[in-house]
Design a binder for these strands. Structure first.
Length: 274
DNA sequence: ATTTTCTCCTGCATGC
DNA sequence: TGCATGCAGGAGAAAA
């Protein structure tokens, strides 16, 4: 369940791999039928290209080359890892980039919820997967308590559904949403329209704080997530509410609650959050 | 228009 | 030990 901190950590790892701009000698498409079919022309479009930057937008990775931009989403179980070009691919390895110098970058995704697509250079803002995305949460000018407050008026859905809505703000998934609400002292079940401006400001700041803390630890490794170098993240040990139903709250020791909100398991403390 | 439900998929935990 | 069942969830489509 890679969210912003995990995707950003992977991005930084990939950036290092492409720092010396090794050329993609060849690309191999082993299995195209993931969530959305991987374009058949992608291998030949990538062949011979040099990746000059790896960027992140929301939970997407963008590999920039002169001829084409490669778009990748990790979905639930997607990962990029570096192997030797001569090593045989493993089960669930779907797309491979053979780099100059004998290494190969592998996109692996057991559950095939991920996305691999191509974008014509410069046209990313029109891409169907990107054009609807809201502001980056760490952009203090674009994502503010005031903007969240204004957008939340008259909404009766739980505020957590709103924080996880990528049109409102990107990069926040199920784990960091629960963690952000705990830090803000706000119930994730609360109707969005009932939040005060001050609460929206607290929620925005708490969201940023938890994302920054996770980023500093290399993200959270729950099941499959790994950094580009294969390392686990370290933030899963700092989750204070996520997946801790029935355990004592770290602040007041009350048994933590959980319930499904908008189809996602949600965790909170009924004493510390209002 | 907003909000919920369903779908995709595999791995893992659980229970008998 | 083996098998069936349920659950996890990002994001988009479909339904409500």
């Amino acid at each position: 369940m890679p969210e912003l901190p995990e995707v950003e950590t992977v991005r930084a790892g990939l950036e290092k791999i492409f720092k010396d701009q090794p050329r993609v000698e060849r690309a191999r498409l082993l299995r195209a039928d993931i969530r959305f079919p991987i374009p058949r022309e992608l291998p030949r479009r990538m062949a011979g290209q040099s990746v000059y930057s790896v960027r992140r937008r929301a939970k997407y990775l963008l590999f920039d080359t002169a001829g084409v931009t490669l778009l990748s989403h990790l979905g639930m179980t997607g990962s990029w890892r570096l192997i030797n070009t001569n090593d045989p691919p493993e089960t669930h390895d779907h797309f491979l980039l053979d780099l100059e110098g004998g290494k190969t970058l592998v996109f692996r995704d057991p559950r095939r919820f991920g996305i691999i697509d191509l974008i014509e250079p410069g046209l990313e803002n029109e891409h169907p997967r990107l054009h609807h995305l809201g502001p980056e949460p760490l952009d203090e000018n674009a994502f503010t308590g005031e903007s969240l407050f204004l957008q939340s008026r008259k909404r009766i859905a739980p505020i957590k559904a709103m924080l996880m809505d990528q049109r409102i703000v990107v990069g926040i998934g199920n784990i960091y949403a629960s963690e952000a609400f705990f830090r803000a002292g706000i119930l994730p079940t609360k109707r969005a329209g009932r939040l005060t401006l001050m609460e929206c400001e607290r929620l925005v700041e708490s969201s940023r704080a938890v994302l920054r803390a996770a980023l500093a630890s290399g993200g959270s490794s729950i099941r499959d997530y790994r950094q580009a170098g294969g390392e686990k993240g370290g933030f899963q040990d700092q989750h204070v509410v996520y997946d801790r139903a029935g355990e004592p709250c770290v602040v007041c020791h009350t048994s933590l609650k959980s319930k499904v909100i908008a189809g996602r398991s949600t965790f909170w403390c009924r004493i510390c959050q209002h």
